[in-house]
């Protein structure tokens, strides 16, 4: 019963779908530039890796430099950040590393998941009205709503990924993200709820894309902070699941990372 119903619905809509497909085809055939843009836009779909280790990734040296670049922090926030970095280094030297969000198996959130995934690949899905980015580490998912207005900050509940809207400027996907919780930090750098992340995502070669990121947070930063990450395509890689099924690491009462042993 169900298949025949579905079948008749399909046959009813088929002529319409065909007409739409023809119309799309005609549009692209009539405007080669549009067709090229379309290819650049859908081309960011696929599975990607950012690599900082030796070999392979054309952007790796630049990525490393940018990852380690100094954020343009105002003096009072620079002092906070430097104190945190020093405390982390000292704790590592003592063999008692400070617990981080990773100790609790929490996802990285934005913008860390775009540049700090370390050895974990990422998948981009391009669909009608939405680009979805899936980071393998911690099963992180970002949804970028296309051609929708951004909400005001007071309409957004703060979270790990915030709210992202985007639009295509030719071959470049421009993404605006706000609403990141203050506790969700990139490289231990403090930020306010007013932080705004702008990304320009562009395929620069058939198998290479660049994500240029600008972070604005006028209360904390002296100027917008720019960085860029380069990703290489992993043609046959299938993203694996990542479930924090048994996390034996924990923080003791002093805040140091410990391993639960049998």
């Amino acid at each position: 019963m169900m298949p025949s119903c579905a079948g008749s619905a399909l046959s009813r809509h088929l002529p319409l779908a065909f007409a739409a497909a023809v119309a799309v085809g005609v549009t692209f055939a009539a405007t080669p530039a549009r067709a090229q843009e379309h290819s650049a836009q859908t081309g960011i779909g696929g599975t990607w890796t950012i690599s900082f280790s030796a070999g392979g990734n054309p952007g790796q040296t630049e990525n490393t430099r940018l990852q380690q670049s100094e954020p343009p922090l105002k003096p009072e926030y620079r002092a906070v950040w430097q104190a945190r970095q020093a405390a982390a280094r000292e704790a590592d030297a003592r063999g008692e590393p400070l617990a981080t969000s990773a100790t609790f198996c929490l996802p990285q959130g934005m913008p860390s998941m775009m540049g700090g995934g370390g050895p974990f690949p990422m998948e981009i899905l391009v669909s009608v009205g939405q680009v979805t980015i899936i980071q393998e580490a911690y099963n992180q998912v970002r949804r970028i709503y296309l051609d929708r207005p951004q909400l005001s900050l007071d309409e957004i509940e703060p979270g790990f990924y915030g709210r992202s809207v985007g639009h295509w400027e030719g071959d470049t996907l421009v993404v605006d993200t706000i609403g990141i919780k203050e506790s969700v930090e990139f490289r231990n750098i403090p930020h306010t709820l007013n932080m705004r992340i702008t990304e320009r995502i562009r395929l620069v070669e058939p198998d290479v894309f660049v994500d240029e990121i600008t972070i604005e947070d006028p209360e904390v930063l002296t100027e917008p902070w720019n960085m860029a990450f380069t990703f290489s395509r992993l043609p046959d890689y299938e993203i694996m699941e990542y479930v924090c099924e048994d996390n034996r690491e924990y923080a003791d009462e002093s805040g140091a990372t410990r391993l639960r042993v049998q």
């Binding site: 981080t100 990773a102 100790t103 995934g117 410990r258």
Partner: peptide, 21 residues
């Protein structure tokens, strides 16, 4: 230098390895 960079990024991925000897 390369090793230090790797340690930094592995820490980003999950945690520091400083609890181990």
């Amino acid at each position: 230098g390369a090793v230090a960079a790797l340690v930094t990024f592995s820490a980003a991925a999950h945690h520091s390895f400083a609890i181990f000897d």
